[in-house]
Design a protein around this nucleic acid. Structure first.
Lengths: 250, 250
DNA sequence: AAGATACGCTAACACTGTTAAGACGATGAA
DNA sequence: TTCATCGTCTTAACAGTGTTAGCGTATCTT
């Protein structure tokens, strides 16, 4: 509560900078942005707790103490609200992937990306649900906003995976049947997506005695990779440094 | 159209059997069952074409030329309508699984079950979506109708997989890390579910150049199994009969 | 102080799933 | 044949949804 103070009397210092004018218009722009953030915060809270479908615009409006139409001055419709939330969370995912660029070994990079992907999905189930478990929001509109705002995060993750797989393939790490980077990427992605989505929708199912997320994630990623690699031992940390018995160069 | 003729004058032969009484009550029971089937047929058609959420009860009523409340004489609510459709389709899936009981080799049985599972999901995307990609319809009601009608088909498939995995484990086919049948089943299920659900939601995504369903299915199932098996060669049809290099049989 | 402007609210529309109450025809009995 | 009964379908409505048009009003500019 009280996420953003729109009119804070305890902040008399006016910037009076060149760009940041202290005009009423600037203040209104700030207030507008603050309300936008307030809407997003309330919507995120409700969506995460109750799911997208179960939350109505009237409930969101109630939470921020405005009337429903006020939301529509900031967001075209309900889905755009959720898309904005997704966009931000997938920046988090993209950031996690980018950190993995430092991992030199492409196979280990793929493994770690898979684990990070599943961890992200379990941490943000409702956003993951909307991003990957629902039909794409744009059907046949190839405008920039659609392809850049929605396609990019997914494109990023997929491209990252694709690149790493191609890297490993050129190193001869994959078996002959798995020389197509896109094919390998699709199977790997499907594997982690399956575990993620299954955990999201059926984790509380009393009929299934789920093992730990960490153990399942490792089981999925390592099994898939081991089944595709030329030398499965290169997954084991103890033998990773020597993928080729002949060449002693790491 | 005209799926069931309720009043067929071209069928004068009355059974007059012991149970099948030719009373008006029996005729009404027939008509009632016929209308129920008509509702189910129309709902299936609409659901499969447009998806569960996009189809309203009024549209279903329109399709069968009745008013919406007429549907509620036969089904408690919209979800029960879909559940009945799912129940029937998952009998199909269970039947496909049962056919695989004749496969002696447990690993090959697991492989074929995975392929059949994905094929089923691709053939019945909307029913698969409701069965495995939505939250379970019953939250905390352990009544028989719920656990038997909904839990069983899923339980069947999962139990079938679990049994086959346990079978293979006792034969020493899985690596030491994969001696827990439930754990292995969960990873395998997640893998096929991932491919199935990804194909369902993102198959038309222009950003992804999907490989063929058959190739992806084999890639997923074979990679996972190969990564878990003690002797990966036992997946290859040519070497399957000789899992142990010592025995030169066959 | 007067006019312009932008913002949020009231009310409404077209939907949704679902239900209560009534009409109407067929059924069985007198 | 006449009448009461019963079951089935329809009409009308309720409570909710996302979304939009139009109106005040409160603020800013001049």
């Amino acid at each position: 509560m009280n996420t953003v103070s729109t009119r804070n009397p305890a902040r008399p210092a006016r910037p009076t900078g060149a760009d940041a004018a202290a005009t009423p218009a600037a203040r209104r722009a700030r207030e507008q942005a603050a309300l936008r953030e307030k809407i997003l915060a309330a919507a995120r809270d409700l969506f995460v707790r109750q799911g997208y479908e179960a939350v109505s615009m009237r409930r969101i409006a109630e939470a921020i103490e405005y009337t429903p139409p006020a939301i529509y001055t900031h967001f075209r419709d309900k889905s755009e609200l959720m898309r904005e939330l997704c966009r931000r969370d997938f920046e988090t995912l993209a950031a996690r992937f980018l950190r993995l660029r430092r991992v030199h070994d492409p196979v280990e990079r793929i493994l770690r990306a898979g684990l990070a992907y599943i961890a992200f999905a379990v941490e943000h189930p409702n956003h993951y649900r909307l991003m990957f478990m629902s039909p794409p929001p744009c059907e046949a509109e190839p405008d920039s906003e659609c392809l850049r705002g929605i396609g990019d995060p997914e494109q990023d993750g997929y491209a990252f995976l694709n690149f790493s797989v191609a890297d490993a393939i050129t190193q001869g790490r994959f078996r002959p049947e798995f020389r197509d980077a896109e094919f390998v990427s699709q199977v790997l992605w499907a594997g982690v997506h399956g575990l993620a989505s299954l955990l999201i929708t059926h984790r509380d199912d009393p009929l299934i005695n789920w093992h730990g997320v960490e153990k399942l994630s490792r089981g999925m990623c390592e099994s898939l990779l081991r089944g595709m690699l030329t030398d499965p031992r290169s997954l084991d940390p103890r033998t990773r440094k020597a993928p080729k018995p002949k060449g002693a160069a790491s």
